[in-house]
Write a protein that binds this DNA or RNA. Structure first.
Lengths: 209, 209
DNA sequence: TCAATTTTTGATTGCATGATCAAATTTTAG
DNA sequence: CTAAAATTTGATCATGCAATCAAAAATTGA
């Protein structure tokens, strides 16, 4: 009867609690992906998950809290997909290329397609002016990309440029896959990824082939 | 008493009708810019415009219709800001640079900051699968950019690349100003714009300085 | 086994929204 | 001036929503 939501600093979650939260987050992702963000009500998510409406409120402090965890989950999954591929690279040039191609690949094959827009959708100010949703959820998680760019500058592969601007631009370019796909569902994503890789190769490298 | 909304193929709008529609659109822009998209209800927009709630429904078929017109208005204004500056350029290289700098400038100084995200926010599928909002509103209006890029390829200033990918990437890069500003409100936009110009200079030109 | 605890249910609450409409007001035209 | 038309009002309607909560059910542990 007592809700858990605001108590735990140390989560110490029970097995069932962890499972339920994961189930709810998964179904929230699926619902958003299928119906779009605006139509993804708690009731619909609960129905899809095959559970009662109140359960979500039992495990999450509110819808904002759920959405925040959904976003974190999606972006973590993306990072888990991209990171090992980038880590294997032996040059910054190759790493940047890999980052771009793997990211487009991930967006194309995961339900995150719709979710990529969440950080923008929710970036708008609340009435009180405080941001409703931390826009760093996407960009703050791109430390890996920052490190690749700095690496390339250190080794002299890359020219001098402002890393934050380049980070933002790369992330935005990747997110651009979503509207591009919306415009033309038959889009050749592999070709698109290659184009992006070439583009940023040009934009970053000091000595061009 | 009879509503106008779905009748006119040829608008043939009265003076007062034109003025009211413009007023409503302006106040909708201001409301969205101030409170964010989610909080911009018809009632709030009407209140801000100092008119009764029903008037909006009298002139617009529905909220979606209003939003569509708001978007068109904002993007038209952006085009009007950027276009003449680009037209004055004597090379594609200069034109692309000007396009980027003027666009960042426009986003920075207009309420469109928040509105730039609308095409994404509303790009999600409706329940019936039909797009609620044409994603081409932004990108379909970037014929000017397409023409600049094709021009540069024709004159040999630019290397060979897929124009649609480059268009999407440039637009996304410009839209990236919004989250970048949200992250750091003290961002030096002029420097940001210059970085972008350099970045795409590198990405597009055949012969680099 | 059985009492305490956790989890789930599903009805309910209160609220904000978009839309509607008859009546009131203003404008237009003859 | 006056009647018709256009415009505006403001109350009202139906809807969908997040959140709440008492009660039921399931689980746990002694």
């Amino acid at each position: 009867m007592q809700s858990k939501i605001d108590s735990s600093d140390q989560p110490a979650r029970s097995f069932i609690e962890t499972a339920r939260r994961a189930q709810i987050i998964d179904q929230a992702v699926a619902t958003i992906a299928e119906l779009g963000f605006a139509q993804a009500s708690l009731a619909r998510i609960a129905k899809r998950a095959g559970i009662s409406a109140g359960v979500i409120s039992y495990y999450f402090a509110g819808k904002d809290d759920l959405i925040a965890e959904v976003a974190a989950h999606v972006f973590d999954a993306g990072e888990a997909w991209v990171r090992p591929k980038v880590m294997r690279c032996t040059s910054a040039t190759e790493a940047l290329r890999t980052f771009l191609i793997a990211s487009v690949d991930y967006i194309a094959t995961s339900p995150s397609n719709v979710l990529a827009m969440m950080n923008i959708t929710h970036a708008g100010p609340k009435p009180d002016g405080a941001p409703r949703f931390d826009p760093n959820v996407t960009l703050g998680r791109s430390e890996g990309l920052s490190r690749v760019l700095e690496w390339g500058q250190k080794t002299g592969e890359f020219r001098a440029f402002a890393v934050p601007v380049m980070v933002t631009t790369v992330i935005q370019a990747i997110n651009g896959v979503t509207p591009a796909l919306a415009r033309d569902p038959r889009l050749d994503l592999a070709a698109y990824a290659t184009e992006l890789a070439d583009l940023f190769d040009r934009a970053t490298r000091k000595d061009l082939p």
